[in-house]
Design a protein around this nucleic acid. Structure first.
Length: 507
DNA sequence: CGGTGCGGGCGGT
DNA sequence: ACCGCCCGCACCG
């Protein structure tokens, strides 16, 4: 979520600026970029050229030929929000094509024991609207900017969805399993080779460093863990052999099937390990599945390193299927997620910290690497009591946006040597209307229940800004100061020299 | 068949 | 005017 906005000196740009700085430092491709984040990819980055994303993003006409805009389609879930025997849930990838997506909806839930139907859980992560992605090409780079924080689980990855589609007409399951395992293996290798020049600390990585619940559960009467990462009764017992493959925990998603859909290790661990420990093909039955059966899994089992790292589950055929479908998730303690009435939550519209209850920083990812005793030495006292936190967050948000606007209107745009787009038009000045669009309906209930979530965002921003390793004594930071000084691009100390702006050559 | 991008058009703000 | 969104179309794999 934070990405380069907070840490890079090259962050003083907005996708709709008439002039964009020339960036010579590029980011590695972030498949699951979330939150208000800006990235700059090499012009020859294939993923960037395809404008691909793990999220199901569809093209949105913004009547601007220079900037491609996409909006999130959310995730396909069971209408009954069923929970499988193993506590997992359904989240398929919505088809981008409208017609195909309509066909998806209403299909039987993949859970055979469930009579529910698939339905779209829309994304409302951007002030009640879907999260948007913007792509802009220059001669030297591809600029990416995301606005909003996804308020829903990740859908299955595109590759997985494609695999099922291509094999969804009655082929042997073994074929699917093999294909998916290959995909996982390939993903592993790719990720291992993609050691980022400058890793985007998006939500995925940020999740690994979440603090424990700030309010004791016994005091609140309900679990205070973030919706996707209850760790109240969770003491991860990780095989050291797994941990050692991800020393930096940049994407510690092994346990996070809920969010990743895909085997997280497919992105974080070498393929050999993945295949050896997760996908034993010896027990794969060669039974033929009907097309519908490929969707319906009796026992979708995800890799579970916590309790069954060496168990039969990991070697079962259904594990393979689950790997592919990516449709099942561990049940989380907090049921609020599935409360549709809470779909629209606070999600700021600025380029700084988001305040979503489902900020990725609250995913269960961190259960992989952290328990309450392993949390970085952040001074939890620097955060105010959760019930007051949201108001503070909002206030700071306003101040932040005001400051940002001031900077945009003033000093920042006065910089010389900007290359001007020919039509010289600003298209997406959403920052300027943030306060008007701030959802007035997002009040009362959730504030009391979820107010402690927003601070995680800033916590992660903090980590992003100070690169984790430097965090030893956050007590020196007032929360307010931290938010303002680190969440406002214009407030950073970064400035461009005149020769650092890229030429925008649009016809 | 579905993903993707483009662009016309409509309605809400 | 701006924006979200729908739709149809074209192109591609």
């Amino acid at each position: 979520m934070s990405c380069r906005v907070y840490s890079s000196s090259s962050s003083d740009w907005d996708i709709n600026d008439s002039a964009i700085p020339r960036i010579n430092e590029f980011d590695s491709f972030s498949e699951w970029a979330d939150g208000h984040c800006r990235l700059v990819y090499r012009a020859d980055n294939e993923d960037a050229k395809r404008h691909s994303s793990g999220w199901a993003m569809r093209n949105t006409n913004n009547h601007n030929v220079h900037i491609l805009k996409k909006s999130c389609l959310g995730v396909l879930v069971c209408s009954l929000r069923c929970t499988l025997a193993n506590g997992e849930r359904v989240h398929l990838r919505p088809a981008i094509c409208d017609k195909a997506r309509k066909k998806q909806q209403g299909k039987p839930c993949p859970n055979r024991q469930c009579t529910g139907r698939l339905e779209i859980l829309p994304c409302r992560g951007h002030c009640g609207y879907p999260v948007t992605h913007f792509w802009r090409h220059t001669d030297h780079a591809i600029f990416f900017q995301a606005k909003g924080v996804h308020d829903h689980p990740r859908p299955e990855a595109k590759s997985t969805s494609e695999a099922r589609r291509s094999l969804g007409s009655g082929r042997r399951v073994r074929g699917l399993a093999v294909l998916l395992a290959k995909e996982a293996a390939l993903g592993n290798k790719l990720m291992s080779l993609r050691e980022p020049k400058r890793q985007c600390r998006d939500l995925t990585s940020a999740r690994a460093l979440n603090p424990p619940p700030l309010i004791a559960d016994q005091d609140k009467g309900y679990c205070s863990c973030p919706p996707f990462e209850c760790i109240c009764n969770y003491q991860p017992v990780l095989p050291t052999t797994l941990q050692q493959y991800s020393p930096t925990y940049q994407q510690p998603q092994v346990l996070d099937s809920y969010w990743t859909q895909e085997p997280a290790q497919a992105q974080s661990y070498p393929a050999e390990v993945t295949l050896n420990q997760q996908y034993d093909f010896t027990n794969i039955p060669a039974d033929l599945f009907q097309p519908e059966e490929i969707f319906q899994l009796d026992q979708p089992i995800k890799p579970d390193f916590v309790s069954n790292a060496q168990s039969e589950l990991n070697r079962s055929p259904s594990t393979l299927l689950d790997l592919g479908s990516g449709t099942i998730h561990r049940e989380f303690k907090s049921e609020e997620y599935w409360n549709q009435s809470l779909n629209t939550m606070i999600n700021d519209d600025s380029n700084n910290s988001g305040s979503s209850r489902f900020n990725l920083s609250q995913s269960p990812d961190n259960t992989l690497s952290l328990n309450n005793n392993l949390v970085p030495s952040i001074n939890q006292n620097s955060y105010v009591e959760s019930a007051k936190m949201d108001e503070l967050s909002y206030s700071v948000q306003k101040a932040t946006n005001y400051y940002q606007q001031t900077m945009l209107d003033g000093e920042y745009n006065k910089t010389q040597n900007f290359e001007i787009i020919t039509d010289n038009k600003v298209y997406f000045d959403e920052n300027m209307q943030h306060f008007e669009t701030f959802p007035k309906t997002y009040k009362s209930n959730y504030q009391e229940k979820y107010i402690d979530l927003g601070q995680y965002t800033d916590y992660n921003n903090f980590l992003s800004a100070y690169d984790g390793s430097k965090i030893n004594d956050s007590a020196m930071f007032g929360d307010l100061d931290f938010r303002i000084n680190n969440c406002v691009p214009g407030a950073s100390n970064s400035h461009y020299s005149h020769e650092n702006f890229d030429l925008i050559t649009h016809q």
